[in-house]
């Protein structure tokens, strides 16, 4: 993947703000990143890091008190500020999203068959019969046994893992270019999570799909992703390939985060910790949101901090980083 190719998704200086009773919440602050065709990019962060809000903003699903600024170009088309009908068209055809809890996006009162065929009949103008056949094919593709019978069941008749498969099948119906997955395996057991991760990898190969995968689990990132965006307090702290992030990360937050994880492959007597509490988005410090907890913080941290390119496609937002200012 070279820098010259046109990215599938080009996010520039994206900010998301919410007006709440006690003031303005800056959920996402000046986010810029690119996603190229066929990549699986992970977005990791703790609660309040803005990782989910970023994706909701991309999908145009922000709550009504949210305000979005900056630019999001998807396949060359600007998404910020376009009409809902145009966005709906793109959302249906080219982008799809799956969530942590599949039940939030499945209608509990409709059979899977009618929910799936509706998508095809609406976006691809298929007849019911074709749509049903196509839907069954897709359910088989995500390895749902006895798909032709099971398609006539209601969502609650599936187990958690099966429901997530149904969601994935549904989101694949229109053969989207981009799949946004918001913690899709967090609620699942590890053995089922392993199944879903394998499935996503296979589907990426088969459909050439690009996936943005939001998670808080560094293990899942290591398993699935090509690149990672590390977010904290609404900032994109570091973005790089997974090998770089896990082995040569530059940002103190990334380093600290990796050090706190109790892992199966290493043994330490005592876990490293990050002191303090996750940021309160209502009272963020000026400058870097991580500085109150950072071991390397200095007086420069409360000033405006530029993005620096440490090496190609490895961008860091920290005063201590060396590299070209972007």
């Amino acid at each position: 993947m070279t820098e010259k190719k046109i990215p599938l998704l080009d996010v520039r200086n994206l900010s998301v703000e919410f007006k709440v009773q006690d003031g303005m919440v800056k959920a996402v602050n000046g986010l810029s990143f690119k996603v190229y065709d066929g990549e699986i990019i992970g977005i990791v962060g703790e609660s309040g890091s803005g990782k989910s809000q970023t994706m909701l903003a991309l999908m145009g699903l922000l709550a009504s008190n949210g305000k979005i600024s900056g630019s999001v170009k998807f396949m060359g088309q600007e998404l910020v500020g376009i009409s809902t009908s145009k966005l709906n068209k793109i959302r249906g055809d080219k982008m799809a999203m799956i969530f942590q809890d599949p039940m939030t996006s499945l209608n509990p009162y409709l059979k899977i068959s009618s929910q799936m065929t509706e998508v095809l009949m609406l976006h691809k103008n298929m007849s019911y019969k074709d749509a049903l056949a196509e839907s069954i094919k897709m359910l088989e593709r995500v390895k749902i046994p006895e798909a032709s019978n099971r398609i006539h069941l209601y969502p609650h008749e599936f187990s958690g893992g099966m429901r997530q498969r149904v969601m994935i099948a549904m989101s694949l119906l229109t053969k989207p270019k981009l799949l946004i997955a918001d913690e899709p395996t967090t609620a699942l057991d590890v053995t089922v999570q392993a199944q879903i991760l394998e499935l996503l990898k296979e589907l990426r190969k088969e459909f050439g799909m690009t996936i943005i995968f939001i998670t808080h689990d560094m293990g899942v990132v290591a398993n699935l992703c090509d690149r990672v965006n590390v977010m904290y307090g609404g900032w994109l702290m570091e973005t790089a390939s997974i090998n770089t992030i896990f082995n040569n990360s530059v940002h103190p937050y990334t380093q600290a985060l990796l050090a706190t994880i109790p892992s199966l492959d290493t043994h330490v007597e005592k876990l490293k910790t990050i002191p303090g509490e996750p940021p309160n988005l209502l009272q963020l410090p000026t400058g870097c949101p991580f500085q109150p907890r950072c071991s390397q913080a200095n007086h420069l941290c409360s000033e405006s901090i530029p993005l620096r390119r440490v090496e190609p496609r490895h961008v860091v937002k920290c005063v201590n980083a060396q590299g070209v200012v972007l």
């Binding site: 187990s159 958690g160 057991d189 053995t191 199944q195 293990g219 290591a222 990796l258 892992s263 199966l264």
Partner: peptide, 25 residues
């Protein structure tokens, strides 16, 4: 169970043979 746990180490993850269990509980 042990093989299904993703480890925060990309080299190990890529090399690992996951013993996938079929189906659900």
């Amino acid at each position: 169970l042990l093989s299904a746990v993703p480890v925060a180490n990309p080299e190990l993850e890529k090399a690992k043979q996951i013993q996938l269990l079929e189906g659900d509980l």
